[in-house]
């Protein structure tokens, strides 16, 4: 009930914002005055109507996880985000071992198997990608300068990064 209503409200606001943004689309002589705006506005309108239906006719509440699981999932998102920005400056092996190990621990909380899964996956996948498939842009390790490291991590901080 409430989840559907909240989600409906979020999509409704997004849809209205989307329509507003669509009216501001720049046009020029080649594209004509209204054609670039037409389809985005139609999408926004359909989305807005559907959102209203969701708000007024919500489905039964889904089974949301307990707060502990939310924390775990939040942690997973943070780990993956760090992995995403560090993959380039630090190379493949070290970030992968950490990320895979932590994810493994979160799925099945036992330290030793998770540790081994992290190391094993990192080295195994590196061999697979580098030597069996020959992917070019995978580098085993890089030692980043502190400035480079900060530059990578600052991407994740709102308004500081770029």
């Amino acid at each position: 009930m409430a989840s559907d209503r909240i989600f409906g409200l979020v999509t409704l606001i997004t849809a209205v914002a989307y329509i507003a943004a669509a009216t501001q689309i720049q046009t020029n002589f080649f594209s004509g005055e209204y054609l670039p705006k037409l389809f985005p506005m139609m999408i926004g309108a359909v989305a807005a109507i559907s959102s209203l239906v969701m708000i007024f006719k919500p489905d039964p509440e889904p089974e949301w996880p307990a707060s502990k699981s939310w924390m775990n999932m939040g942690l997973a998102v943070i780990v993956l985000a760090f992995y995403a920005v560090l993959l380039k400056p630090m190379g493949f092996i070290l970030p992968t071992a950490f990320a895979a190990g932590i994810l493994s621990y979160q799925i099945s909380p036992r330290t030793k198997p998770a540790f081994l899964a992290g190391i094993g996956l990192s080295i195994g996948l590196f061999v697979l990608f580098k030597f069996a498939l020959g992917l070019g842009n995978i580098v085993a390790y890089r030692i980043p300068t502190p400035a480079k490291l900060w530059e990578a991590i600052s991407i994740l901080i709102p308004f500081v990064g770029h």
Binding site: A84, A99, L103, P113, N137
Partner: peptide, 30 residues
């Protein structure tokens, strides 16, 4: 599952990373 899922995730990251080599796509994927 505790080997499979991290493995699939890492393969996904490398796959997308090899497309563009950009962190932006990876964050978007998350």
């Amino acid at each position: 599952a505790w080997i499979l899922l991290p493995g699939v995730t890492m393969i996904s990251f490398v796959g997308i990373f090899s497309l563009s080599g950009s962190y932006f796509d990876l964050l978007l994927m998350i």
